[in-house]
Computed example of a mutant assay.
Amino acid sequence: MYGAITGDIIGSIYEFENHKSKAFPLFSEASFFTDDTICTMAVIESLLDDVDPAITLRKWGAEFPDAGYGGMFGTWLRRPDMPPYNSYGNGAAMRVSPAGFLAYSLDEAIDLAIKVTAVTHDHPDGIAGAVATSSAIYLAYQGEDPSAIRLFISERFGYDMGQSVDEIRPWYEFDETCPGSVPQALTCALEATSYEDAIRNAISIGGDSDTVACIAGSLAEALFGMPSEIAAEAERRLYPSMKRLMERMYHDRGRQNPAKG
């Protein structure tokens, strides 16, 4: 979804130079997609074409080998015989948004999330991070109130969803695990007043900024939609193959592609 990919692009320049404020330019000439976007594309293709996600992840990884993959995942991409490696990194949640977008029920959102996650991130915390994100996105598209989604995530997954963005910001640090980034990212969206506000929340807490903004952005699009000018600016940085795949996904669900106005 453009919500996730735009968050990744905006957060790309802040990942290693955190900006603990909501005041910053959304885009610069250095803003570009990272592994979050590449893996999201792979998941979209897997679900649209009913292909093993291991195949599409390795296909897209081979096409974009220098996108900043984590160490173990990078090894997995290069080794077709390598099984899941018990990861609970936030890579599970950064790529899962199409599962919530394309699902026709909450059960399907959960099942699809597990399907596209377990090929690598088969640790229970990795699965939980992906399922929580996919479920939140699906519920938002069904019109559930942010407070109801927050309660569902807290009760279902045991995440601490009680802190505000202002309470998270002072102590939050770089954390690439699902337990240490998914609840914070979801909070950034659930507390927001718009798509842009969710992204500003996500960047402002610091940490693994591109992934936190990617996760927050995926939920924020489901909650608020997103301004076409922001989506179009993100689309400008994508390859033609990516644009075509995104258009297919929105068309598949009869939803307006926000990059097209």
Rank of each mutant, 00 (worst) to 15 (best):
D122G: 08
A99T: 04
R150A: 04
N201R: 03
L112C: 07
T133P: 07
A23V: 15
E45W: 12
R255K: 14
L106P: 02
P80H: 06
D160H: 07
G100Q: 01
D49F: 12
I10L: 07
E221W: 00
G70L: 07
M1R: 04
R95A: 10
R150H: 06
G254M: 03
G126A: 04
R169Q: 12
G68I: 00
I127C: 03
T177Q: 10
H121V: 10
V96P: 03
I153V: 15
G129L: 06
F27H: 00
E15L: 07
I127F: 09
I13W: 04
Y14C: 06
E229W: 15
S12A: 07
I168V: 05
T34S: 01
L106Q: 09
D145R: 14
I44C: 07
D210Q: 00
A99S: 14
D107Q: 14
A234Y: 05
T187P: 08
L238T: 00
A220L: 11
D52E: 14
I38D: 02
I114H: 14
T133K: 01
K59F: 12
P25E: 02
A136W: 01
G89I: 09
E191I: 05
D66Q: 13
D35P: 04
A113Y: 03
S154E: 15
A185S: 14
R79Y: 15
E15N: 05
I127A: 01
A93G: 11
A99V: 06
Q184W: 05
L106D: 06
F152C: 10
L112R: 14
N86G: 08
R150V: 03
M249Q: 05
C178Q: 07
T211V: 04
E17L: 12
N257T: 03
D175S: 11
D35R: 00
M161C: 12
G70D: 06
G91R: 01
R78Q: 15
I127M: 11
A148F: 13
G3M: 02
L186P: 02
R169W: 10
F24P: 00
G158C: 02
G158M: 03
K260S: 13
S194F: 04
F24Y: 13
E173F: 15
E176V: 15
M226P: 01
R253Y: 13
P84N: 13
E144P: 09
E167R: 11
A220F: 12
R248G: 03
G261Y: 13
F33W: 09
E144K: 14
E196W: 07
P84V: 12
S241C: 14
Q163H: 13
D52F: 12
K115L: 15
D8P: 01
D160M: 09
I5L: 11
F73H: 08
A128H: 08
A136Y: 00
S105Q: 04
P25A: 05
G217L: 00
G129V: 04
D252Y: 15
I137Q: 05
A113H: 05
K115S: 12
V131P: 10
A62Y: 11
A202K: 00
M226N: 00
S204C: 08
A259K: 00
D50K: 13
L238D: 01
P179A: 08
T177C: 05
E235W: 12
G261D: 14
R79S: 15
M41G: 02
D107H: 11
L57W: 15
W60G: 06
I215D: 01
R248A: 07
T193R: 14
Y88W: 13
Y195I: 02
S147R: 13
T75N: 13
R150E: 01
P179M: 11
